[in-house]
């Protein structure tokens, strides 16, 4: 699903993003507020859905090559986050929907989790 279509479906506002980035095809997603959780289990190319608006979310997105961030619950990213996202080229969206609704809608459109399942005691996994 293209980022532009996701914006429509979530009635989202595009805060940072170029016309090229609107054409990015999103296949997977990851929802979390805990940044250590994102660092551990998000995968490159996924769409991150979070309520945490600090610059660290954007920095993690860059570290992991995450395709973009959707801030849910109407949360507005901090000004510094916006600045860093522009610099690092990470698209930022904002939706009024809660994370439950956001994930539910995207899942219904065929987007899947960027990891399917966790096995206890998993050692290194390809990211």
């Amino acid at each position: 699903m293209k980022l532009a279509e996701i914006i429509d479906m979530l009635d989202a506002e595009l805060i940072v993003g170029t016309p090229d980035q609107l054409q990015i095809d999103i296949k997977t997603a990851f929802g979390a507020d805990l940044m250590s959780d994102v660092l551990c289990d998000a995968r490159s190319g996924c769409l991150l859905i979070t309520g945490l608006t600090t610059p660290q979310g954007v920095r993690i997105a860059y570290a992991l090559d995450i395709a973009g961030i959707v801030f849910c619950r109407g949360k507005r990213p901090q000004p510094q986050s916006i600045e860093i996202a522009r610099e690092l080229g990470i698209p930022l969206l904002r939706t009024q929907y809660i994370m439950f609704e956001t994930c539910g809608r995207l899942f219904g459109e065929g987007i899947i989790g960027c990891i399917r399942e966790i096995c206890a005691g998993d050692s290194f996994r390809e990211i």
Partner: peptide, 8 residues
């Protein structure tokens, strides 16, 4: 499962 899949 991760949150996204559980919720979906």
């Amino acid at each position: 499962l991760p949150a996204f899949e559980v919720v979906g």
